[in-house]
Each structure stands twice: as C-alpha cells, then as structure tokens.
C-alpha cells in the first residue's frame, strides 16, 4: 500500500514538473491582417496585428506622455475617474498589487486614463495619486481630450465606456485591465474587480517579460 502511494506521488510530481516546463505564450488579441510580400523571389506571408496607435496625454505631474514613452515597455491600461463610487476603488486596490510588484521594474508601466477629464484636472489626479501612495514614474494617471480617451478605449483597447446619467457617478465603464506588450499589441484583458484575475495578470506580465523580443512588423 505504502509503495503504491509512493509510486502515485512520484508520477504526480513528474507530471507536475513536465507541466511546468512547458513554456506558456500569451495570445495576441485584436484584428489581424495577413500581408504577402515577395522577397528574393520567395513569397512570404506576415501578420500585422492590431496595435495601440499614437496618442498624447498629460500625466499627474503635468508632463506629456505619448506612445514613444512606452516604446519597449510592457504596460497595463485601465479607465477610471476619481469620483467613481462603484468599481474604481476595488480596481485601484487590485491595481496597487500590480504597482507594488513592478514599481522598481523599468519596463513595466501602468496607465490609468480618466474618462472624466473635465473634473479630473492634473491637480486632481496628482492629489488622487498621492492619496494612493503612488510616487515615481511607473503609474501614470492620464488626462486628455474626452473624445480621444473614448476612442482609444473602444476602438483600441476594446473597453466600453460611456456617460450615463442613470448610474451612480454618471458613467458606466468596464473594469478591464488591458495588457499591452512591448510592440503595442493587446496580450490580455483581466477583470480588474476580481483579485484572482489580477493575480493572473501579474503572472502574465512576468511571462511577457521573459518573452524574446520579436522583430517589429512594419
């Protein structure tokens, strides 16, 4: 009996090792278009993935942040507003875990776009960041034109946001954390209100960090 149990344990352990050694790669989301090129008489097909387009916003320090600041960086994006009474506090509580895990890592950033730029001025965002204990340049609270923010959310990050006077706070928005890789491609979306999904996000960022750099498809 003891021997049998021992054998089972060995098999389980071995399987566990085998499972762990498989390298996980994250899927690439969004639209994709194949392009066929003829190079040196050879026909090759490449895939162009959906990427986050150029943007320009202001962070909580009043500095301008654009897509160039994120070249070669992995980042997590979400949408919020400082007076949000519903899901934002729980999202920020979970995002703080992401922040605390990667705040000393230069190639991981967090971008929180306000969907209420009229109220959330740079000063308001700075105060908000201070109250969350955010320092340095790893978590940016971004403010820009409302139309730009909404377009970016829906067309590019694929997160739904819209004003709605019938809900508390005046906006409905999805609490997704969107994971963007070093090539500006969407690699994951996680429900920011669920601690388990945010744990997965943290694990996936680590996976992305160890991913070999691929040549950019232009």
């Amino acid at each position: 009996m003891k021997k049998l149990a021992g054998a089972i344990a060995v098999i389980l352990l071995w399987n566990a090792c085998k499972f762990n050694s498989e390298k996980k790669t994250l899927p690439i989301y969004g639209n994709r278009t194949p392009i066929t090129k003829v190079v040196n008489g050879q026909t090759t097909t490449d895939t162009i993935y959906q990427t986050i387009p150029a943007f320009k916003f202001i962070d909580q320090y009043g500095d301008s942040i654009n897509n160039k600041n994120l070249d070669g960086k992995i980042y997590v994006a979400d949408f919020f507003f400082t007076t949000c009474p519903s899901i934002c506090p729980i999202m920020q509580r979970n995002m703080l875990d992401v922040y605390n895990t990667f705040k000393n890592t230069n190639d991981v950033k967090i971008l929180s776009y306000t969907i209420d730029p009229k109220h959330d001025s740079v000063a308001v965002l700075k105060k908000y960041a201070d109250k969350l204990g955010i320092t340095g340049n790893s978590w940016w609270f971004l403010q820009g034109k409302k139309d730009d923010t909404y377009r970016l959310a829906e067309k590019n990050y694929l997160v739904a946001v819209k004003p709605d006077s019938t809900v508390a706070g005046g906006y409905i928005h999805q609490g997704y954390f969107v994971l963007i890789d070093k090539k500006s491609r969407i690699r994951g979306a996680y429900d920011g209100t669920k601690p388990d999904e945010v744990k997965q996000l943290i694990a996936d960022i680590k996976t992305l960090k160890s991913e070999p750099d691929q040549p950019a498809v232009k």
Binding site: P85, P89, Q92, R93, Y128, K131, G133
Partner: peptide, 16 residues
Amino acid sequence: CQNCHGTHGEGLLRLI
C-alpha cells in the same frame, strides 16, 4: 459598501 471600504473594512489608504 465593500467596493470602497473593503472586505475587512480596511478602506483604501488615504482615499477611503
């Protein structure tokens, strides 16, 4: 209440 004040009533840093 829980979204803001937390599962254990811990609030959120200096915000809540």
